[in-house]
Simulated scan of single mutants.
Amino acid sequence: MRIARRSVLLAAVCAALPCLSQAAERQTALARPALKVVRPTQAVMVCVARAGLRLVAGGERGLIVYSDDNGRQWQQAEVPVSVTLTGMRFASKLEGWAVGNMGVVLRTRDAGATWQRVLDGRTAAELALKAAQTAYTSASAGAAAQRLQGPLEDAMRLVSEGADKPFTDIIIRSDGSLLVIGAYGLAFSSTDGGATWQTQMQKLPNPDGLSLYGHAARFDEQWLVGEQGLLLRAVGNNGVFAAAESPSTGSLFGALSLRDGTLLMYGLRGKVFHSAAPGEPWATVHTPVDASLFAGLQLDDGRVLLAGQAGQLLVSADSGRSFSGVGLKQRYPFSAMAVTPDGAVVLAGARGLMRVERADLQTASESPGAKRSAT
């Protein structure tokens, strides 16, 4: 009997070893600073943003680099974690935020030269569990308690699974408050610059826990887009998000608000959707590509660029109603892009960072090629 018990115990320990190993690796990655890289601009880069006249980009294993010469030369920043970074935004030329795998949120106050961790997946899960427990115990018996049972179980699962889920984007609101979103419906907010955080998951109409991928603000509207065409809309800076009718059943990976009031959404298989003004219906824009689109921006001259999975770069001169392809010397999967102070564009992707000159964009936009419009 003693031998049998010992065999069962050994089997249980062996079965748990992969999980323990993964948990240990996550713990190490959260505590280990990003390693210095010989050629940082050739590593996998996932996000890039402007900080005043500086460009800052982030990618695999906590790598962050910055450039003060319009994306020609880059220096590596000091980063306290070695997890892949997936999104980056700046509130000013000095203060910025980055999010990434394992529920990491980083803050910089020196234009991206050094970073501090202000949230990770372990803390986020504990916050979600505490909020769910408080709501559940405060509810009266019956239907109210039953409705809160599911969120409580979800929060308990977050804690048990550990810091294994990524944040995908961070929203900086006009009042300075923050909202970070991510996989499986993760959503947390801060009103004090990241010192404290509150879960927002139960305030979003996302009962299936679909992943949230992107955000855009148009006038007083706030939009969140995500998995399986998930589309949420709020009115006002701190308005409550409500489900909006989506034109897509495929995942939406990003949204872009243009200066003329146009809102674009883009995602799976090259799909783009166009709304000319608040209240206007969505029109489908047929693009010359069928690979997923991950990034969008508007140039100073009003043209719109979209980039994506197959190394394609699309340009529109009519506020996103039609797009044509841009000829690039190199193509690899792109995930983000930013305009440099001198008007060029820096693309971030699977093979690092690539600068595309303004003249090349101008020539490409006027060259013949497939061009299809919204219907």
Results as ranks from 00 to 15, higher is better:
136 Y>L: 14
65 V>D: 02
66 Y>K: 05
49 A>R: 02
251 S>Y: 09
73 Q>L: 14
372 R>V: 07
250 G>C: 07
329 K>T: 09
85 L>Q: 05
149 Q>V: 15
21 S>C: 13
5 R>I: 08
352 G>N: 07
353 L>Q: 05
252 L>P: 00
10 L>P: 01
332 Y>T: 09
26 R>K: 12
3 I>N: 14
187 A>D: 01
131 A>Q: 03
213 Y>H: 02
213 Y>Q: 00
112 G>Y: 02
349 G>A: 05
102 M>A: 15
55 L>E: 10
228 Q>H: 12
132 A>Y: 04
222 Q>N: 10
341 P>H: 02
208 D>Y: 04
254 G>N: 03
254 G>C: 03
217 A>Y: 04
95 E>Q: 13
333 P>C: 00
364 A>F: 11
187 A>T: 05
259 R>I: 11
132 A>D: 05
120 D>L: 03
178 L>M: 05
313 L>I: 01
311 G>Q: 00
351 R>F: 00
156 M>S: 14
187 A>V: 02
338 A>K: 03
297 L>I: 12
284 T>A: 13
372 R>F: 06
156 M>Q: 15
348 A>C: 10
322 S>C: 06
291 A>G: 05
33 P>T: 12
121 G>C: 12
125 A>E: 08
359 A>I: 15
176 G>P: 00
94 L>V: 15
231 L>W: 07
327 G>F: 10
270 G>P: 00
101 N>M: 14
55 L>F: 07
224 L>N: 03
83 V>C: 02
62 G>R: 08
287 T>E: 01
357 E>Q: 11
138 S>T: 10
65 V>K: 04
315 V>P: 01
52 G>P: 12
59 G>P: 03
352 G>E: 04
3 I>F: 12
209 G>W: 06
207 P>R: 11
217 A>R: 07
348 A>S: 11
307 A>D: 00
146 Q>L: 14
277 A>G: 14
296 G>D: 02
140 S>V: 13
268 L>I: 00
234 A>E: 07
181 I>Y: 02
105 V>D: 01
267 G>M: 08
109 R>C: 06
90 F>D: 02
281 P>Y: 04
140 S>P: 13
2 R>K: 14
226 G>F: 04
